[in-house]
Design a protein around this nucleic acid. Sequence first.
DNA 1: TTTGTAAGGAAGGTCTACTAACAAACGTGA
DNA 2: TCACGTTTGTTAGTAGACCTTCCTTACAAA
Lengths: 391, 391
Amino acid sequence: MTATTQPLAAAHGVGRALRPTGKVLPEHARAHNRSLVLAHLFHIGPASRADIARSTGLTRVTVSGMVAALIAEGLVEELGVRVEGKVGKPATLVGMRTEAFQIVAVDLTDDTHLLGAVLTLVGAVVVRRSVALEGRTGQPAADLLESLCQELLAAATRPVIGVGIASPGVIDLDGRVVQAPNRGWYDLPLAANLTESLGVPVHVANDANTRALGEFTYGSAAGSGCMVLTIGEGVGAGIVVDGALVLGRHHAAGEIGHVTVVDGDVRDEPPLDCACGRTGCLETVLSVPALRRRTAGLTPEESDAALASVGRLLGIALAPVVSALDLAEVLLSGPPELLDGPLRESALATVRARTMPVIGHGLALRMGSLDEDGALAGAAVLVLSGQLGVS
Amino acid sequence: MTATTQPLAAAHGVGRALRPTGKVLPEHARAHNRSLVLAHLFHIGPASRADIARSTGLTRVTVSGMVAALIAEGLVEELGVRVEGKVGKPATLVGMRTEAFQIVAVDLTDDTHLLGAVLTLVGAVVVRRSVALEGRTGQPAADLLESLCQELLAAATRPVIGVGIASPGVIDLDGRVVQAPNRGWYDLPLAANLTESLGVPVHVANDANTRALGEFTYGSAAGSGCMVLTIGEGVGAGIVVDGALVLGRHHAAGEIGHVTVVDGDVRDEPPLDCACGRTGCLETVLSVPALRRRTAGLTPEESDAALASVGRLLGIALAPVVSALDLAEVLLSGPPELLDGPLRESALATVRARTMPVIGHGLALRMGSLDEDGALAGAAVLVLSGQLGVS
DNA sequence: TTTGTAAGGAAGGTCTACTAACAAACGTGA
DNA sequence: TCACGTTTGTTAGTAGACCTTCCTTACAAA
């Protein structure tokens, strides 16, 4: 059986590049390796130059040069000689000066308050400030945000390397808020505006994505394939696949709150109206207000059953996602008294029942390890990642 | 409101790097830029060195050096002077020698036959060979595959730059078949074995992923966020997100065929037994045999209704995935007479009805633009990508 | 005291891409 | 017709980044 057919496409002009990346210069390699050294010091802690060389694959010479540059920048310091007595010349430890700089982070998740903080590089909250929105939206809300940032910058006790902001809504890679209906922001270049007015690098990202970043860097999220489901006023998600946040076509990835999970086919479960104008969205059963309404005035047993039934609906929605992406973990972020019980257990059991064993059985579905500061921590990671290449 | 709290994590040992990449050397930058030049010539077609410089951002000098190296390798050739008369010195076009080399590709999707071909670099089939499996599995099946590859290598009329293989099952990045039950392969280093025995670079990947690559490079798949659903004996999918194939925790991403879509809650739809040992999997209604069984002996109207009901089930399973990833496109690959009609329309309508307007309305759900050779073309892309960095 | 091991640094070499400058080839307009 | 501007592609020199090799320093174990 032999045949000669036409080309699948014209001889040229075939498709487009899978990964349309730009040119790479030697200096980019330098920046990458710099991040490699910094990341090692950040994640593993103080180490000798030789240690860093071994774990990064660079030579001791290169690492020495890099460390010297980082010391000159003030980001790294020598910490003296390692005490452990082994053969050979003792190592001089170097470490990242995680206390010498600070990060300003603001969480805009809440509809009523702007939640801000000054954090150290390892995510410890040093100063906390919050301010009431009092119904402000649009430019007044942006102005309030700016003044909060000013206040936090003034409150910082160390040089601030940048400002990170976790905002609801659709936000592109440049920190432009494409749309954030609850804040009345549409096509607002928030990061650029604030960078200009504050005089400090500002990074803005979606709050669910930010929370996922926080769980990832400071928490316990798995490396390969993880979804962080943020359950509050609404329901959102940040997804990390193959080591990178998923952005999506419209930078709207993770908007799983408005997937229909209740329709006429589901018995004993009437579809509820949703703020988005449709009915039966996941948010109508899984948001914190919805859960409180559903369990209000019930006995503990009834309440558990009600939460389990919501967990089942969540599991039905998660199963295709978990299967398609072969996720390792799903983390829930929200009030533990509502989520970390029958709801979580029922959701996990449902996902397992509805997916292939190889996928479902390896899956973990548990509470995130960060509390309500998760979005703040994630906003700090935005800055770490953007300014130092560490994440 | 001011407070000082504990660090979210110990001062060090916080989490792990988001993207654990290795060191980058200048030579890697060189390789990257080389791919950039080759990709431009491959996708856009012949161009002058100055053209390439403009579109890649590299200087003319750098591009000249790169092109000289590629000409020395035989991958690129000068094509003479551009005829269009404009001011300035006329450009000498250079082009990729897409006819000077060939690729051997094998598609193992079918349970009864190994489907092989020799292709040009632009995906045109030059020679076709197929061989019956006759029940072989395990090592005999691998031996048969090797002999088919030998035969195709001998049949090639130009130097072969590599062999690409599309296999069902779970396959890791090194071309090791973790498991492929239908072929009786478990933990088989297929790519390494064949590379050794054939003396040519061999790349192996999952058949659904491969088909997605084919649609992407030779077909019409969208850049940002695309899922190619392969519907044959089983149901699988390859997903491209943010310009990269999704692999997943166990390299099992896209295994959406065994998500439960039919259970007691769905009216008028009895769950069917699935080969995986569970019931109501997507595969039990959407695989080609299932579709043929379901429509056998029905009037056209009844058949359309039956296909539409399957489309609805597919849409219910797709909606959470489309929302979570903010996909731009879902492509169907399989028999058009079954898929490209009520089934597809019903699936699209269902997804739109069950997702946010911003996500669902922009979504395209259509047939893939490649035929049954899609997996072969994708296998060729494996080689292009692996050997030349072009994709 | 000797020997072996390890850390850190200095010198020199290679690779990469950039800038600057130039020759060749061609339209254009005086 | 001929000077002039434009575009192409090449040559020469520069800067950056990493490597290999060799050396000194410092310590433990025999």
